[in-house]
Nucleic acid binder design. Structure first.
Length: 551
RNA sequence: GGCCCGUUGGUCAAGAGGCCUAAGACACCGCCCUUUCACGGCGGUAACACGAGUUCGAAUCUCGUACGGGUCACCA
């Protein structure tokens, strides 16, 4: 046995398989030409992040549009940062947003597919097998440097203005002999396994990023860590092994990875793997004191996708909004296909923005309002109550105490309307918006607009009471307002009033406003006639009387 | 600091040397429609970061500057 073989046996004595074993175990996927295999590989370090959702969406739709496969893989190689229930949180979150998962972790505890296990902490033997092979080939070696050793080297490099890192002459254990290694191990020293990089900073490599285009960078010459001292791989190594074995065709990930691409390409080539296509997704940004910055888990509530659920944004609305960021031609498509499922949109990575988009709440609200406006009352009822049940128990009780009443309320300007109102963007707005329908929420406010005289208002309400019939349809209802209008010198027709404003105190429109204030305490509500029908005769009279009383 | 990437109205963006007197959407403003609000219709304000160069011609190509972002771990 030569030095390399001895080293390999010394370092990884329990590994008895060779890479061939795994190559045979995980065969090529049987997929049609052009089908793309994508994945999202989150670390269970906390809740589902907006950025993770975004990249998941991009991966998902890329697979879908090409008839491919989208799978999840858990990157739990850093035990220190792991959070209890993290896997479940992320996977369930994906499903909740309609990101379907074909393979890998399909719930917090279930895996599906023949390329597993889909959790890196359970794949140690696989990684070690490949590392052992690399050592035998002289492409990897043990490094016994401690954190302090590395720190000292870095300091020297910084002082001498040399590029920091474990490369070239600073790769101290690069040519360690079997004997040296054995002695150190016998002393009880721990080690990591590093790549013996054949690269040089002088060389340039280029790769074609499917999102950002052609990128040129110096070749990697750093002997970066493959296996940590606990025998678990670093991200770089796990990425190469897993994406190769799981036959990922497109690695679509956050653009913080761009600078690691030279490492990855080198690794794939050294391992004899086919290099996948890379696409680097720009982060979603946020405006902070006039400065653009990446949305941060720590500072921004909307970084946690849970925020949107709490606010009562429909998950599909968040997704559609993200689609407008992901694909510059999505909005046009949406206008042309207002009812189509977004999944049928033909997604093209080339249409993605190369710079990070600012998160735009206005736009989200617009997308959301349009979506909710298109719903029928039954659907709104279902979604609203589901939200309230989880986030506002008190409101939930009110909504469900009399579901027919609530549904009638929700049907106003919606079910029979040619052009439904665009009002609600998120369910948390509903409580305030519909407050006057519920005794517990309604606080009368009898403030009149400045152009209306209190005496007139009082007289009008008293007169209106006499003719009011809850059974009137919209036309009859308005005719009655017009009927009484002349008695107070108000114009029955808006046009008349506009043509000759001095002849009148106001128009039928102003009278409606008085009535609206009496009934709802507001000047801005959906169709008043319908509101009065839903509220019922007694309640309306009660409110009218209450207003007459205070005037 | 080294290495990457980026920069078109307030926001998202179209744009591949002449079709750009620079599209569209959101937001904002005005008018019309209208019982209110909304929808809808019509219109408006508003942008190629800066400087050189290449070219008959540059938002588009090149270089430099500025600004922004990312990355330089036994984290992903």
């Amino acid at each position: 046995m030569d030095n390399r073989e001895l080293l390999a046996e010394l370092l990884l004595p329990n590994i008895d398989k060779t890479p061939d074993y795994y190559e045979n175990m995980y065969p090529e996927r049987n997929l049609p030409e052009g089908a793309r295999v994508t994945r999202v590989a989150p670390s269970p370090t906390g809740y589902l992040h907006l950025g993770t959702l975004f990249t998941s969406l991009v991966n998902r739709i890329t697979a879908t549009s090409s008839g491919g496969v989208f799978y999840t893989r858990i990157e739990d190689t850093d035990k220190k940062r792991e959070v209890e229930g993290g896997i479940e949180d992320i996977i369930d979150g994906l499903w909740r947003f309609g990101i379907t998962i074909d393979e890998g972790f399909i719930s917090g505890s279930e895996q599906k597919g023949i390329y597993g296990p889909y959790q890196q902490s359970h794949r140690a033997e696989i990684y070690q097998t490949y590392v052992k092979d690399l050592i035998k080939k002289g492409l990897a070696y043990p490094c016994f440097c401690t954190a302090e050793d590395l720190e000292a080297v870095r300091k020297v490099q910084e002082e001498n203005k040399i590029r920091t890192g474990y490369h070239g002459e600073y790769a101290r254990h690069r040519d360690i002999s079997y004997e040296e290694a054995k002695a150190l191990i016998d002393e009880g020293k721990t080690f990591v396994v590093r790549l013996r990089s054949p690269g040089s900073e002088e060389n340039r490599i280029t790769f074609d990023d499917t999102i950002k285009g052609k990128i040129e960078m110096p070749e990697n010459d750093e002997d970066f860590v493959l296996l940590k001292s606990d025998g678990i791989p670093t991200y770089h190594f796990a990425h190469a092994i897993d994406d190769h074995l799981m036959h990922t065709t497109h690695v679509l990930r956050g653009d913080e990875w761009i600078s690691s691409v030279p490492k990855h390409i080198q690794l794939f080539k050294l391992l004899g793997f086919k290099v996948p296509k890379y696409g680097h997704v720009s982060p979603i940004m946020k405006l902070d004191n006039g400065a653009k910055r990446k949305i941060s888990k720590r500072k921004d509530p909307e970084a946690a996708v849970h925020f949107f659920a709490e606010q009562g944004y429909e998950s599909i609305c968040v997704i559609e909004y993200l689609m407008t960021i992901a694909a510059s031609d999505f909005e046009d498509w949406r206008r042309a296909n207002p009812d189509a499922d977004y999944r049928t949109f033909k997604f093209n990575l080339k249409k993605m923005s190369v710079s990070g988009a600012l998160f735009d709440e206005n736009k989200l609200n617009d997308v959301s309002k349009t979506k909710i406006a298109a719903m029928k009352s039954d659907e709104v009822y279902e979604h609203l109550t589901a939200w309230a049940k989880e986030f506002d128990g008190e409101f939930y009780e009110m909504l469900t105490a009399n579901s027919d009443f609530t549904k009638a309320m929700l049907a106003i300007d919606r079910d029979d309307a040619k052009k439904p109102r665009k009002d609600l963007a998120k369910w948390s707005e509903a409580k305030q918006y519909f407050a006057y329908f519920f005794d517990a929420l309604y606080t009368p406010n009898h403030t009149l607009p400045e152009n209306i005289d209190a005496a007139d208002a009082k007289a009008f309400l008293a007169e209106y009471k006499k003719v009011y019939d809850v059974a009137d349809d919209r036309q009859a209802w308005f005719d009655k307002i017009k009927l009484v209008a002349p008695k107070f010198q108000f114009a029955a027709e808006t046009k008349e009033y506009k043509a000759n404003p001095d002849a009148y105190k106001g128009s039928a429109g102003d009278l409606s406003t008085i009535l609206r204030i009496a009934i709802t305490g507001r000047t801005n509500t959906p169709d008043l006639c319908s509101i009065m029908q839903v509220l019922g005769y007694d309640e309306c009279i009660k409110r009218i009387d209450a207003m007459i009383e205070v005037l």
